[in-house]
Design a binder for these strands. Structure first.
Length: 124
RNA sequence: AGAGGGGAACAAGCAGCCGCGCAAGCUCCGUCCAUGGAGUAGUGAGGAAAGUCCGGACAUCAUAGGGCAGGGUGCCGGGUAAUACCCGGGCGUCGUGAGGCGAUGGAAAGUGCAACAGAAAAUAUACCGCCCCAAAGGGGUAAGGGUGAAAAGGCGAGGUAAGAGCUCACCGCACAGACCGUAAGGGAUGUGGCAGUGCAAACCCCACCUGAUGCAAGGUCAAGUAGUCAGCCCUUAAGGGUUGCCCGCCCGUGGCUGAGGGUAGACCGCAAAGAGCUUUAUGGCAACAUAAAGCCAAGAUAGAUGGCUGCAUAAACAGAAUCCGGCUUAUGGUCCCCUCUGUUU
RNA sequence: CGGGGUGUAGCGCAGCCUGGUAGCGCGCUUCGUUCGGGACGAAGAAGUCGGGGGUUCGAAUCUCCCCACCCCGA
């Protein structure tokens, strides 16, 4: 996942946390907020108006474990990126239980939450 | 076979696909140039990256100066940029042993503390006891009892009213000390009838070291209203600053000139090369030093290493953020050397 | 990333500098008082002093190393 798509800044994070729609899964919470002000241009010209942020609490573990979880979530988001809709800010926040989930379990969990909240359209 | 001690290196790899950071070099595009953009060969976490416990490099300052205080270190010698680290040696202590551990100078410079118990706790003392004189009581004594962490050498013999280094042998202790060692220290031997406790990670004395703050240090750029801030010049009091105090120094007032602050951002510091690593040689017991040859591109800025498949199968602790040298703590299996016990030959 | 602080009874705090007995308030338990409760009075229980070494005869206290929590700095 390229850095253009990552959500940045303390303010934009707290904005999504407060105003966004919240949905809880097995090991993850997802916050979604509609945001039409996003305008990022990829140097390739492929414009995807979406921002994804990852928030991991210190309670989950030490830096090593937090990093592992962050990379897994990022990798999942990269795989799902092409199906995502425009004009959205998304935050994924894993719980400590997600550390014991496998990659595929985590992926199906996040995919389900994305589908429920309208980040991804229902498959036709 | 079991139990233990010391040390060393490693921290899985390979192939395929998807994906991320950087990109000296190369290719393409733009530009007068400086250089900018895109792509790409290549390259991309640790032994502890951790704790932040020490030591530096580097940077800044209302000058960091003098004196006292404060803080740190503390056997001796050596190593180092430096240290509380490392190497060698001494002593003490723990262990049957291999070995481990030690803030390990000074208690005859001074001050302080030693609760409770106990008769008495630091210029000692006399409760029970023992012995003598004896009416009460007085005197001698430090063997024995009991208290305590600690009570005026230990044991045996002589000696005595009972006792006592009172006397003697051995041991301990103190003092002197040939000789050995750079030193810490060791110590043949001699002398003394025995002084006298412990605590200095209590104050302290002695020796050596010590300015403070830390890359969110600090520097450059762009935007912009005011309370403001910075520079220069002049100078008085109150007051303030320096880790504390005194001296000293500086700020403070006014004028002139200029543009910063909150907040958000870009670049430098900072990324290729230094107290670097490897090998060999020389010196040294060693730590290490010197010389020669070869090798070395992590560099993010909400923060780059992940996912899937296969090889029968893949562990532990754990993730760089200015950079080095140590220490400490967490942790996986492997190898080497050594000690003790048991069994067999 | 850097700097600093705090851990003592169920809760909030003393004691630590200057080492020997862990104490205060609220709460808790029992009894009294009341028709019953509250308040009041009396008695009582409850603490590995965050964990582990070292110094010391003796450590909550001095010292070293860990653990947890909190605060500050652009």
């Amino acid at each position: 996942m390229k850095r253009v798509y990552s959500l940045k800044g303390k303010k934009s994070y707290s904005k999504v946390f407060v105003k966004g729609r919240k949905k809880k899964g097995k090991g993850v919470v997802v916050f979604v907020l509609k945001d039409n002000t996003i305008e990022e241009t990829d140097n390739q010209g492929n414009i995807k108006k979406i921002k994804v942020g990852i928030s991991i609490s210190k309670k989950i573990g030490k830096a090593n474990k937090r990093n592992l979880l962050k990379r897994r979530v990022r990798s999942i988001c990269h795989e799902l990126l092409n199906d995502m809709n425009d004009g959205l800010s998304v935050i994924v926040k894993p719980y400590p239980e997600s550390l014991y989930m496998s990659y595929s379990e985590l992926k199906s969990d996040i995919e389900g939450l994305f589908r429920y909240t309208g980040v991804i359209n229902e498959k036709s």
